[in-house]
Nucleic acid binder design. Structure first.
Lengths: 219, 219
DNA sequence: CCTTTTGCGTACCGTACGGTACGGTTCTGC
DNA sequence: GCAGAACCGTACCGTACGGTACGCAAAAGG
């Protein structure tokens, strides 16, 4: 169960507990609620220890991202032989998982934090968040659609472009809306079905019934 | 040239100049660079005037959003008879405009600001930003695809769902990536073409050559 | 011309943050 | 059992913010 090419520092249990408190504060009160004093109080540790462990505030934020990413390992069960139905199931599962992850409290809070820090000249936190948080889910999807292509069930020239199409169909502007404070979808499964149906219409090799494309919906 | 159902307070020229400076500070240095003292210095006005005009800091931020929105009026030229080629052209134009707007410095800075303020319990700024900034572009797109349906060129049951599909195909995760500090696309036009081609494959009534779907790409 | 309003510039206040220093306490290795 | 490290709690420091108050110049208006 070792992580892949992990380079990450890995923190002590005590430090992980502190990072957990930090995430809690961030989720509950936003960035302004995550102060060194407040964290020290909430985690029953001293500010001195915080600075010893994480260097400065930015180091703490980076550690929080790494810590959260280390919790979201995604399994890659890629043994079975793919059929059209199986591919659809796996794509819909991926879509549902993606929607659940993006709508998660911690994910939203960390993204808000990194976006709040970012400026025109890029952002250290933003890079970290994209790399740590996105790599896993990207790999899972890419492996899946690659497998679909090798099984003759999907057709596309550029896997990256096809993946971004899938992503856009699943998420649309929902992520930004949630980041801005809007509530999420009422029914993730429905959205997943619609997105995957559209994706298969675009990139599937078999005729797709276009039924699932225009149903009542309503966000 | 009157705005539609505008209720907005509309500010004096002097106040607009101050808001312009505020936007400049925000774009150049992010939220932390937008302080009342800094703005007063940059705009050659007194802090007292700022508080008299805008109430408090949140009022200033809201005014900045309203001011920016008042600058981005979108024309609605919906006279001509639609053909398939014309519809495609208009959709691609919309897509390019959308990508340009989302990638704009001021748009990114305001979205970062509102997202940074937002918490789980919604955000005043976020609501404002979505309503003021999005309404125009949403209306333009909805009118366009509605027109396309009436002309028998598009088919869908739910216009809202179809629009979100179009939006997702155009933007994918690009908006969030840019908010996190990543550079934008190298070629908006290419992305617009691909997205519209996919959208027409899904919702067009005429056979679409699937050529434009899988080309080399590269973001 | 004089009055009133508007607004600039500056000084000021309370607060709260990030970061440091220190004394006392618990844990660890030998 | 003891020395040394790790660590907690608290106090402290400098700074910078949001917001207010005041003195004075310049425009507005009759």
């Amino acid at each position: 169960m070792r992580a892949d090419t992990s380079d990450m520092p890995e923190f002590s249990p005590r430090q992980n507990a502190v990072l957990e408190q930090a995430l809690r504060l961030l989720v509950e009160g936003g960035e302004k609620a995550l102060t060194t004093s407040g964290l020290a109080r909430a985690a029953n540790c001293s500010k001195e220890s915080l600075y010893k462990w994480f260097g400065d505030r930015e180091g703490l934020l980076a550690a929080m991202i790494a810590h959260q990413a280390s919790k979201v390992r995604t399994f890659e069960r890629s043994g079975e032989r793919l059929t059209a139905d199986l591919l659809r199931d796996h794509l819909e599962l991926f879509a549902r998982d993606l929607l659940v992850v993006l709508a998660g409290d911690v994910s939203l809070a960390l993204n808000r934090l990194a976006i709040g820090q970012a400026t025109r000249e890029g952002s250290k936190l933003g890079k970290l968040l994209l790399e740590h948080g996105r790599r896993q889910i990207d790999r899972r999807a890419m492996a899946l659609i690659d497998q679909g292509k090798r099984a003759g069930l999907l057709r596309f020239d550029n896997a990256d472009a096809a993946y971004h199409t899938l992503y856009g169909l699943i998420v649309s502007d929902l992520h930004v809306r949630m980041l801005l404070g809007e509530p999420g979808l009422k029914d993730n499964a429905r959205q997943a079905e619609r997105a995957v149906a559209a994706f298969l219409t675009l990139h599937g090799t078999q005729k797709q019934s276009a039924d699932a494309l225009g149903v009542s919906a309503g966000r």
